[in-house]
């Protein structure tokens, strides 16, 4: 086993946040479930109660939980990754690692696996909550599997970006701020870009008097790098393309993560200048 992984896990599990964060995370998911159930069943806005199917409640609760989960984990991923290498610089322990026989890739891999494993732990903690909708119907174990798989790929990519920032900056505060900026850009800018493209496409279609068709892929393209898009795409099940949107999106995230990893390895090879 890579000694970095063992060290990182040992240190991480000794931190106070190792039990505080899962507790807060589960509380947030529990709250989301309660809210989703309440809005589905209590009709708080008095829109007119209708006969509800259990499956509707199940699907509603499920989507609420997986989107809340993705949002919370996207907020947590930079916490674990962006400080991982900068803290070694701040504590002046990176010198010891760089002059040992560990390669930059091994150092990076140890940090990556440890950060990701903690996020996996959070994902696993949430499985019982994700499975609650089974009681209502409309959601199957394969949906949970798809949602967890997609979330994992997106988080791995975000973790790699965080580690790149950590290898680039000297201070954790800068690395964390830039990591959050990247996450926000991926979430908001991609969505805004998509909205602009869609609006212009709709206007052009209406002006030409063409009938409504499925949005072409070049209009959707910005969303491929939106962390929430592959979740929607993989669970909607409507994609008729030979290469579905969720697969393209995951490929884009995998590419982003791989690029971030390569750049982080390069930075670690030159990290002697920073210590």
């Amino acid at each position: 086993m890579n000694p970095m992984i063992r060290k990182e896990l040992r240190q991480r599990m000794r931190e106070r946040r190792s039990w505080i964060l899962p507790s807060l995370y589960l509380a947030a998911l529990g709250g989301a479930v309660a809210l989703a159930y309440y809005f589905q069943t209590a009709d708080p806005f008095e829109l007119g109660r209708r006969e509800l199917q259990g499956a509707e409640i199940g699907v509603s609760v499920f989507f609420t939980v997986i989107f809340t989960q993705m949002a919370v984990l996207l907020l947590l991923a930079p916490v674990f990754s962006a400080g991982a290498i900068t803290i070694e610089k701040e504590q002046r322990t990176l010198t010891g690692l760089l002059t040992s026989l560990l390669t930059p890739v091994q150092i990076w891999w140890g940090k990556f696996v440890a950060a990701l494993l903690f996020l996996v732990l959070l994902l696993l903690c949430a499985l019982p909550i994700l499975s609650l909708p089974f009681a209502f119907g409309g959601v199957g174990p394969q949906d949970v599997g798809r949602a967890v798989g997609v979330t994992l790929v997106v988080l791995a990519s975000t973790t790699a970006v965080g580690l790149y920032c950590s290898s680039f900056f000297r201070r954790s505060v800068h690395a964390t701020a830039v990591s959050y900026a990247v996450v926000l850009a991926l979430t908001i800018l991609t969505f805004v870009s998509f909205m602009i493209l869609q609006t212009r496409w709709e206007a052009a279609r209406a002006a030409a008097g063409r009938p409504y068709t499925e949005l072409p892929r070049h209009i959707i393209a910005p969303l491929y790098l939106n962390p929430f898009f592959p979740l929607v795409a993989v669970l909607s099940g409507e994609d008729k393309h030979r290469f579905p949107d969720w697969a393209i999106s995951l490929l884009m995230f995998a590419t982003l993560g791989y690029l971030a990893a390569i750049l982080a390895w390069r930075n670690l090879r030159r990290a002697g200048e920073q210590v």
Partner: peptide
């Protein structure tokens, strides 16, 4: 100024670097 992992035990610290070498 050599850094140390303050939250590790002395034995763990040495074992980690023994593995790192």
């Amino acid at each position: 100024v050599a850094g140390l992992y303050q939250d590790m035990r002395v034995g763990e610290f040495l074992e980690f670097f023994a593995d790192a070498f």
